[in-house]
């Protein structure tokens, strides 16, 4: 039995579309695509910080490190219709690092899955926006996360469903780097490598900090790229704050690929806010009034 994705899509399955059609449906890469993503990322950062200050709780470090990745996916790469959040043909995004909900919810709201006004309810009593996203509460959330190491297996399952149906959708999953200490990721990595899930793209938000210290001082992940290659994956290492690079690597069509893709996005925790950048103490925390004012000033256009 071969799990290799057909190079040329001949229409036999329900969801299959011809290659030309598939390419046409994806957002066209334009010269200003990177500029659009950059602007969205700035707005995501501002929104996440506003939410955290309003809620007086949150994980700003990871929100800031992942903002560019989120912006690239939702405003440059993925194919979806926020009015049809369960459309069988949609591209899927699985937010495995569920604690970065400030960035995630901001992105979903900006993408039109729910009103941006709802962001003001973040972690307020009875809000649908608790600290960790719940599929049953919000459109656009593909699976509930919060405990780490849950996103990868779910993304692998979606990718297998797509493989069975020969569907054209792609599956993206974002994990933290410290999160990769959870063994369930590597169970899923083995399955994905074995089944050659070319429709699956993992992005590792490689900010090198976990809750209390550097990943390499806690339980070292390096050589991380070699680990993924050994599990049967292609690996791309990029600057996770470089919008053109993100678009380039993430937009590459899945079709010519024969393996799942791991994108190691080298980032900085707290990116975009000078006093948070690469500071472990901003894994979670709330800026005071002066810090918030400074952060928002730094995140002006």
């Amino acid at each position: 039995m071969s799990w290799t994705r057909p190079r040329c899509a001949i229409s036999v399955g329900r969801f299959i579309v011809m290659k030309s059609e598939r390419e046409a449906k994806r957002p066209a890469m334009s010269k200003n695509a990177a500029a659009i993503v950059r602007e969205r990322a700035r707005l995501i950062r501002r929104s996440a910080l506003e939410m955290i200050v309003q809620a007086n709780i949150g994980h700003p470090g990871g929100d800031m490190s992942s903002a560019d990745i989120m912006a690239a996916l939702y405003f440059g790469v993925m194919r979806f219709d926020p009015k049809k959040p369960l459309d069988p043909g949609r591209d899927r995004f699985v937010m495995s690092k569920g604690h970065c909900s400030g960035a995630f919810y901001s992105t979903l709201a900006m993408a039109g899955f729910f009103p941006e006004a709802d962001l003001a309810t973040y972690m307020k009593p009875l809000s649908k926006l608790n600290a960790h996203p719940c599929r049953a509460y919000l459109p656009g959330v593909e699976t509930s996360t919060g405990p780490l190491g849950h996103g990868m297996p779910v993304a692998v399952g979606i990718a297998i469903a797509g493989q069975i149906d020969q569907a054209s959708y792609r599956v993206f999953v974002l994990t933290g780097d410290g999160e990769l200490q959870e063994g369930s990721n590597w169970e899923a990595a083995m399955t994905a490598g074995h089944r050659k899930l070319a429709n699956l793209t993992l992005i590792v938000d490689r900010n090198r900090l976990q809750q209390g210290a550097r990943t390499e001082d806690t339980v070292a992940l390096e050589p991380l790229a070699d680990k993924w290659r050994a599990f049967g994956w292609d690996v791309e290492e990029i600057n996770g704050h470089d919008h053109a690079q993100l678009l380039d690597v993430l937009s590459a069509p899945a079709t010519p690929r024969q393996k799942p893709l791991c994108v190691i996005a080298n980032t900085f925790k707290g990116q975009g806010v000078s006093f948070m950048r690469d500071q472990v103490k901003w894994h979670h925390g709330v800026p005071d009034a002066a810090q918030f004012a400074l952060a928002m000033k730094e995140l002006e256009a």
């Binding site: 039995m1 297996p153 779910v154 399952g157 979606i158 369930s184 169970e187 899923a188 083995m190 399955t191």
Partner: peptide
């Protein structure tokens, strides 16, 4: 139905997550 039998190996955490993903993709696992 060999293509509808998904053996994830000896990996129960992965097995449940994969099943959730299959359901997301429209399957009844």
């Amino acid at each position: 139905w060999p293509h509808r039998l998904i053996n994830v190996g000896i990996a129960e955490q992965n097995m449940i997550g994969v099943a959730a993903g299959l359901a997301n993709g429209g399957k009844i696992p």
